[in-house]
Simulated scan of single mutants.
Amino acid sequence: MSQLLEVNGISVTFDGFRAINNLSFNIGRAELRAIIGPNGAGKTTFMDIVTGKTKPDEGTVLWGEMSRNLIGMNEARIAQEGIGRKFQKPTVFEDQSVEDNLLMALRNNRRAFAVLFWKPTDADMNRVSELAAEIGLSNALGRKAGELSHGQKQWLEIGMLLAQEPKLLLVDEPAAGMTPEEREKTTDILVEAAKTRAVVVVEHDMEFVRRLNCKVTVLHEGSVLAEGSLDHVTANKQVIDVYLGR
Rank of each mutant, 00 (worst) to 15 (best):
T54H: 05
K55A: 09
A145K: 02
P120F: 11
K167C: 09
L116C: 06
L148H: 03
H220N: 15
M73H: 15
A34M: 03
S129L: 12
A133N: 12
Q3G: 01
R110P: 01
V12H: 09
A132W: 03
E207I: 10
E184A: 14
L244P: 02
M125G: 01
L141K: 06
V98E: 11
E181I: 15
L148W: 02
E203V: 08
M125I: 12
G28M: 03
R127W: 02
A76S: 14
T60I: 00
L219I: 09
S223N: 12
G59M: 02
T60V: 00
F113P: 00
R143G: 02
I20T: 03
A41C: 09
P166R: 13
V191M: 09
S149P: 00
G142L: 09
A145P: 00
L212H: 06
Q3N: 12
K53L: 15
Q96D: 05
R246G: 13
K89D: 13
L170F: 06
L212M: 13
K53A: 14
D172F: 07
F117G: 07
A176N: 13
E6L: 14
T91Y: 00
L103S: 09
I10D: 04
I240Y: 05
Q96G: 00
K89C: 02
V202E: 10
G146T: 01
A34D: 00
M104N: 10
L219K: 06
N213Q: 11
H204F: 08
K86F: 04
A198R: 07
N213E: 10
A140F: 08
E99P: 05
L212A: 10
D172G: 09
G37Y: 02
Q80P: 00
L156P: 09
R143N: 11
V200R: 05
N139E: 12
Q154R: 15
H232L: 13
S129K: 13
K86R: 11
R33T: 09
H204Q: 15
K53T: 12
D124H: 14
M206P: 01
G151F: 03
P90I: 10
S2D: 11
E130K: 09
E182I: 10
F117Y: 10
L230I: 11
Q80I: 02
M1H: 08
T234I: 08
A79N: 06
R33G: 00
G177D: 12
L32E: 01
V98H: 08
A145T: 02
T121E: 14
T13R: 10
F208N: 10
I240N: 04
G28I: 00
G64K: 08
D95F: 06
S223R: 14
F117R: 11
Q80G: 07
Q238V: 07
N139T: 09
T187G: 03
E157H: 11
L169Y: 03
H150K: 04
R29W: 00
M160H: 09
A123L: 13
I27Y: 01
R85H: 05
N236P: 02
L102A: 05
V12E: 05
E81G: 01
